[in-house]
Amino acid sequence: MLYIIAILFPPLAILFTGKIFQFIFNLILAALGIFLAIVTLGAFGLIYLLAIIHAVVVVHSYRQEKRDERLVKAVRGEK
């Protein structure tokens, strides 16, 4: 679900992961991409595409961190 949000609304997906500084960076990147797309009459612009890629990478790393935490808990025998 976060991957779909990362493609449609990149800053929102990063906000859901709880990474505030990454959210601010992506928000600036997405806003700049949308602004330049409007000014240059482009579809979305390459900068907005970079915001999408950044959001997908952040969401992937968030999910990987959660998997790692579950694995560590399982090895330690915690619930």
Results as ranks from 00 to 15, higher is better:
R76I: 09
I4S: 13
A31N: 00
A51W: 00
V72M: 08
L71I: 10
L15F: 14
F35N: 05
V39Y: 03
A30Q: 04
A43R: 04
F21V: 13
F9H: 03
K73H: 02
G18T: 04
I38C: 03
I20A: 10
N26D: 14
R63Q: 15
L12D: 03
R70P: 11
K73M: 03
K66A: 09
R63K: 14
I14G: 03
L49K: 00
A55S: 09
A31D: 02
V59K: 06
V72H: 08
K73I: 02
R70W: 09
V56Y: 02
V39M: 03
R63A: 07
L27F: 09
L46Q: 08
A6F: 10
V56N: 04
A31W: 02
F9R: 08
P11W: 03
E65D: 13
K19L: 12
E65H: 08
H60R: 06
E78N: 10
G33L: 08
I20S: 10
I14T: 03
E69H: 06
V59I: 07
H60K: 06
Y3C: 10
K66S: 10
I5Y: 11
F23D: 11
F9D: 07
A31G: 06
L8Q: 02
L8D: 00
I7G: 14
F9N: 09
P11S: 02
F25G: 12
A6D: 12
A74K: 01
I4Y: 12
E65W: 07
I47E: 05
H54L: 05
L49W: 13
I52H: 01
N26Q: 07
G77W: 09
D68Q: 10
I52D: 01
K66C: 04
I24V: 15
D68T: 07
I4C: 12
L2F: 11
N26H: 06
F16C: 14
V39S: 03
I7L: 15
A43Y: 07
I4P: 10
L2P: 04
I28N: 00
G33E: 06
V58M: 13
I34C: 06
Y62M: 07
A37F: 01
D68R: 10
V39K: 00
Y62G: 09
L15R: 14
F35S: 11
F16E: 13
G42E: 12
F9W: 12
T40G: 02
A51I: 00
V39I: 09
I34M: 11
F35H: 08
L71P: 05
A37M: 05
L8W: 06
F16K: 15
L41P: 02
A37C: 04
G42I: 08
K66Y: 02
F25L: 11
F23K: 08
R63N: 15
V58T: 14
L8S: 01
I20E: 04
H60Y: 13
A13F: 04
I34F: 11
A74N: 00
H54F: 13
Y48Q: 11
P11I: 02
A43N: 06
